[in-house]
Design a protein around this nucleic acid. Sequence first.
DNA 1: CTGAAAGCGCTTACAG
DNA 2: CTGAAAGCGCTTACAG
Lengths: 343, 343
Amino acid sequence: MKVTKEPAPPLRQKVPVLSDVAKAAGVSVPTVSRVLTSSKFVAPELRDRVMKAVAELGYRPNGAARATRSGKRSMVAVLTGGTSNYGYAKTIEGIEKAARQSGMSVIIAVVESDDDEAVNAAIDLVLSQPVAGVIILEFDRPGLAAVKAFPSSIPLVVAGGGTRRTGKTGALLDERGAGKDATNHLLSLGHKTVHHVSVPTMGKHSGRTDGWRAALTAAGATIPPVLHATWEPASGYRVGQELAANEDVTAVFCGNDDVAIGVIRALLDSGRRVPEDVSVVGFDDQPHVALWRPALTTVRQDFQDLGARAFTLLAATVETGTPPGSSTVKPELILRESTAAVG
Amino acid sequence: MKVTKEPAPPLRQKVPVLSDVAKAAGVSVPTVSRVLTSSKFVAPELRDRVMKAVAELGYRPNGAARATRSGKRSMVAVLTGGTSNYGYAKTIEGIEKAARQSGMSVIIAVVESDDDEAVNAAIDLVLSQPVAGVIILEFDRPGLAAVKAFPSSIPLVVAGGGTRRTGKTGALLDERGAGKDATNHLLSLGHKTVHHVSVPTMGKHSGRTDGWRAALTAAGATIPPVLHATWEPASGYRVGQELAANEDVTAVFCGNDDVAIGVIRALLDSGRRVPEDVSVVGFDDQPHVALWRPALTTVRQDFQDLGARAFTLLAATVETGTPPGSSTVKPELILRESTAAVG
DNA sequence: CTGAAAGCGCTTACAG
DNA sequence: CTGAAAGCGCTTACAG
């Protein structure tokens, strides 16, 4: 690591406050406040003088003081188990965009694990700021734990995979239905059963896993033990090697695209063809999986929309004081090259 | 979209404030403040009573009021052109983690474009909160515009690809050096020249593009026109089709992994083999590209570390009042299967 | 329409 | 060590 020493810049000057603007404009402090919040009528001339002073001084209202006095909060917080995996990042993107369009800022706190200490630390961090409300990403166990531990005095909305274990209002994705669709697709191709590789989402309570199991049960197919992967594509590769060693495996439903990619590569490296010998389905539809060889059949989840819906729900909760109903969207199965009828 | 109507929960109760705690503990307000900020000595007995009241009432300090009175700010803002692309998401993850470990919250605002209106709107949004400082992701034109427009009265640090066009202190990645390495690797394999596909980062001022051009120039190779892709992998596919149609193309250096994936698939679909006929190098090293077929030779950028370094720099700036020197890390070229000596 | 006054929740000198 | 008082930057009744 190279470190470059630079000359220190001039000392920062004091940031201007409301009274500086008032002085510069030759009006009282409340008058400046009034033109800035446009709450009351102000004579056009004074208004002009104020706006001019604001521009000249580069004044920006101090949101903290504003929130302290008026109780109006202009931040929403998102509490989440992670920020960089595809679904998380896209959901946050959707929230941020919707918030920005409403003039609100978003503050992010990650919940490291589902143990009490981590959960409370994250909640404390978030609630020590003047937030209007909170969106919790109920994608994983830390998220779930945060929902459970969250105090009821703050408006809360969840965004998640629709396991609905907490019963909170939220924007949901019908993961269970999508898991069923994916499994039924494979079954309809003539596969006797479908193996499943899970990712570290809800553990035993994953909607996709539930849907897979339900579809198998409904079809009277045997239910193979669930195989577990981490978020790392490489762990998909390891699981794929196990799968490749098992002659009975002809169809695999993976918990996400990264894992599917690992599984496919392991299968191929072991001499099993995809989809001729083994069909594989992913989950998420990251943009690049359409270009994979074979192009991945997967479940498309619209995370950005999920984030936007969550924000809308939260805004309504904050405004009316009571949470509106939840909204659920069913992800769509996208058929591509990685699945085929059994030979 | 299915909408579920649920019964409204009981009305939210008022959140407890410092004076509630003081009353419950039978002490004065300043005493509660003192135990919470542990600024002065407090008798153990009073301290216990206060802590008990805090726990019972579920009191959490109001950060806005705190910031208003003490001037101590517990938020850092990140201003960025995007949040969900791999490099952005990972950098934000690094910042969030470092901030959390210092007890600070992070607030995010995206700068939609590099036009004045969007830039100022994002800056206003961020500065209306009590932030201790700001990290701007100088990965693209909106980020660059934000750096230029940012008022000097607030501590600022950039995180970026090291083009250093603004001269601000920052955590940097030596993209230019990495671009040179990638190009030289291809040249050393016997390729007469290297084609380049750019992504929408800094436009003409991209470090990776500069490095590519510099390496070509140093080697006395001809410099083919730069081809442009968007952030979408599919755009890489389109560019790849152009490349495939050109017999002279034997080596391609791509602006990122997603584009490389699109380029490779197009090459393959056109009957050109990779790496036998054409070598391809990516940029970023997203975890799944090691499992691609062929496994992608690419430049590994440690974005999480970048984010952590940026936070450290910002913390130092806030503390000492003057920015320390910038730090630069050179990304590492990872050799895999997508590059080979010319046949 | 505009200013003097009070107050949001907190922290920080200041007395005791 | 602890409480009464002042004050951070702002907004919101209240008079005029």
